[in-house]
């Protein structure tokens, strides 16, 4: 009966279950109500997301004169070292940034919830980076990261540490983008984790204020499992956002140095908006969407496995 699901795609946490009254009429009524509740959002999602993506799918089989070329655009991409490299860069970026952001956001949320005075104030302040236009955040960090006369290196020198190359080095550019994106995102994601932590029942919360080893054990074995739904949201949403991120790259590195930050979404942006090669951008979008769906699908699958296993 309690097939309760956080992220289960196939079975639902059935509340308006026909359950006791197994009649067709009840089920019919439930379907009708669901349609009514869903339709305003779905009409807009179809108009502004699904219909255009279907159009993009068809465009990916055309050339720039709108003639059918079959898989030509896909062949061009899959034979291109630069595209394959951009997939590799995108995956590496996500393997690094998602755990970093989620752990930091969780740490921030725990500090806010577990005993800091004025929790609302800290939450609000740390939310501020995300409302600054991304172009400006990128500009600020671009100036801060300057290797020869930047603020961050000035701080490093002042405390006796060696200067770094940051965005101008193929080895450090991705980490620099991760720092920037985490500055923007950590406070934002912590908001949802704070809300999740507050869903944990009060008696557990009281245990959480105890010090020492017991704190960590309660956190790991009791509280985190109890907030798996908000955590699942943050994991999936953060991954989706970072798989599609490109603004800082567009403004600061344009994919460089030596293609080390050449994220797929940036390449799509460039093909569509700079080179006006819409069919190629369309094929690239379809391939990216497949990769993103595979990764997020895997996340859902693993989250479900883990729950049914425990």
């Amino acid at each position: 009966m309690s097939a309760d699901s956080s992220i289960n795609l196939t079975r639902g946490g059935a509340l308006l279950s026909p359950g006791s009254v197994e009649d067709k009429k009840g089920r019919h009524q439930a379907t009708l109500s669901a349609i009514l509740f869903l339709s305003p959002a779905f009409v807009l999602l179809i108009l502004f997301r699904l219909a255009p993506v279907i159009q993009v799918f068809f465009d990916s089989f055309l050339n720039s004169s709108s003639e059918w070329v079959g898989l030509e655009n896909y062949r061009f991409l899959l034979e291109s070292d630069s595209f394959l490299n951009s997939i590799r860069v995108t995956l590496l970026f996500n393997v690094l940034i998602n755990p970093i952001q989620i752990v930091m956001a969780l740490g921030m949320a725990l500090l806010i919830v577990d005993g800091a005075k004025k929790p609302g104030m800290w939450q609000t302040l740390n939310l501020l980076p995300v409302v600054v236009p991304l172009a400006i955040s990128s500009l600020i960090w671009g100036v801060a990261f300057r290797p020869d006369d930047g603020i961050i290196n000035a701080i490093l020198i002042a405390v006796g540490l060696p200067e770094q190359r940051w965005l101008t080095s193929a080895d450090q550019a991705m980490m620099s983008i991760i720092i920037l994106a985490s500055w923007v995102g950590v406070g934002y994601w912590s908001l949802f984790l704070v809300a999740g932590l507050h869903q944990v029942p009060k008696d557990v919360m009281e245990a959480a204020t105890l010090d020492g080893a017991r704190y960590w054990r309660t956190l790991w074995y009791v509280r985190l499992p109890l907030m798996r739904r908000p955590l699942a949201f943050v994991l999936v949403a953060d991954t989706a956002v970072n798989l599609l991120l490109f603004a800082p790259v567009q403004i600061l590195t344009r994919g460089g140095p030596v293609d080390s930050t050449n994220l797929v979404m940036f390449d799509i942006y460039r093909n569509a908006f700079v080179f006006a090669d819409l069919p190629l951008a369309a094929a690239e979008t379809v391939l990216l969407l497949i990769v993103v769906m595979a990764i997020v699908g895997l996340q859902f699958f693993m989250l479900n496995q883990r729950r049914s296993g425990s």
Partner: peptide
């Protein structure tokens, strides 16, 4: 892109 890479040491 090439100029920026060369500038950065490529």
């Amino acid at each position: 892109k090439a100029f920026e890479d060369i500038r950065n040491g490529a």
